[in-house]
């Protein structure tokens, strides 16, 4: 199931709802993505360098394509693993540090499938789902740049990335 919404979600409530439609599963994996208070990465080893304090993050998305891409990714996970039930919730709009951004739940008879399918969904939605983060802090606003490490994480699942540069 896919939900794209501005409203917050309650992990406990969502878990209970999913369990009601996935009776008899042996394991459920839940991933929650949260807005960090600090963004950016330290490359010099000094934890303070290159990092920006975040006041808020605004997530923009492409209505229609977002739902379609998330549904495709979920269908691919179901093809690859024996998943009894799954849920992806992704929020958009203005979010402050500590706020929930994304929830991915996968339920299966055994833990391995639930863990792997969950990681697959998170890796793939980061590189396929049309969302863009605009960070705002004391230094002003900036669009978050895509990370090569996210592409590498998606690549390890052995699926040809469908996102391609327009320069090819």
């Amino acid at each position: 199931m896919i939900k794209v919404q501005t409203e917050d979600f309650d992990v406990g409530v969502e878990l209970k709802t999913l369990m009601a439609r996935a009776k008899g599963v042996g394991g459920i994996v839940t991933f929650t993505g949260i807005v960090r208070e600090w963004s950016g990465e330290s490359s010099s080893g000094d934890p303070a360098s290159g990092r920006r304090q975040l006041a808020a993050m605004t997530l923009e998305h492409y209505p229609g394509m977002t739902e379609r891409q998330l549904a495709d990714i979920e269908a691919e996970a179901v093809r690859r693993w024996p998943i009894e039930a799954s849920l992806i919730i992704h929020r958009y709009g203005r979010l402050e540090p500590g706020a929930n951004i994304v929830l991915v739940i996968t339920a299966s008879a055994h833990r391995q499938a639930a863990f792997e399918a969950n990681e697959f969904l998170v890796d793939w939605l980061k590189t396929k789902a049309p969302f863009w983060k605009l960070e705002a802090g004391p230094q002003g606003q900036a669009w978050v740049e895509a990370k090569a490490s996210d592409d590498a994480a998606a690549d390890k699942w052995g699926m040809k990335p469908t996102k391609r540069s327009a320069a090819e």
């Binding site: 939605l125 396929k128 049309p130 669009w143």
Partner: peptide, 25 residues
Amino acid sequence: QEYAGPEATVGANDEVALFPPVTGG
């Protein structure tokens, strides 16, 4: 609403979206 490379065809009534690499999740 499907990713397309430079060789993909476009025509009348198509919806063409241009955007930077995505950063959701």
